[in-house]
Amino acid sequence: MSPDIRKTFHLDGVEIPFREGQTVFDAAMAAGIYIPHLCHNPDFEPHSSCRLCTVIVNGRPFASCTQPAVAGQDVKSDTPELNDMRRSLTEMLLVEGNHYCPACEKSGNCRLQATAYALGVQYNHYPQFFPHRDVDASHPEIILDRDRCILCGLCVRISRRVDRKNVFAMTGRGITTTIVIDSPSGLLVDSRVSRDDEAVQHCPVGALMMKGEAFKVPIGERRYDTSPISEDSVAKFQAREVRLHG
């Protein structure tokens, strides 16, 4: 054990060890404590835009995915107030798009749906928006369904930093924000995207999906049908920790 692993902070009263440079989120997940999150994928740089992972650090709210862990700090996460806030954010994402779970191929593998399960969302308190958004089915292998996009920006970030292609970008402001494609026609088919791109593998919802793969796994046997997202995310994170740090 390296000497700096003994540094700790308190999360909901539990002592959590951390390595120098680790975020509150990473240290919590490594210790087996799930913090709900949507825009963050631990394999990529954090973005802190969805705010679902907000925790209270020494009395002030911070996004745990970007908040550095500091020895001795007092962090609160699993509180009724924070879970209410997370539930409201999730419900707002659900009413803002067109999330028809019964008709969506991502159902059962969808992080938005699974996060709503974890937070106990039984209905959305807010009026449904029913927005009209464009679907881009021009590419022979990849479909972009903006109805389901939650604007987490993962595809934008991964395409820019990992694939080095800049296929995706966001345009507009506020409620009119949308994903656009870098191609002369604005369509996926004319862009440099390919099915092997990392950017099209990590969409947390059903906005970016591969064609020709529907119902390969039946409804009811999919990832979050069989294991709650809290357990799945922690197990995946801990396996990653072992792989990277031993």
Partner: peptide, 18 residues
């Protein structure tokens, strides 16, 4: 009690809302 997705969100019939 709202029973099912259509009662809760509008569901499949609400796809005509677009």
């Amino acid at each position: 009690v709202s029973m099912g997705e259509c009662a809760i969100t509008g569901g499949i019939p609400s796809m005509r809302n677009h």
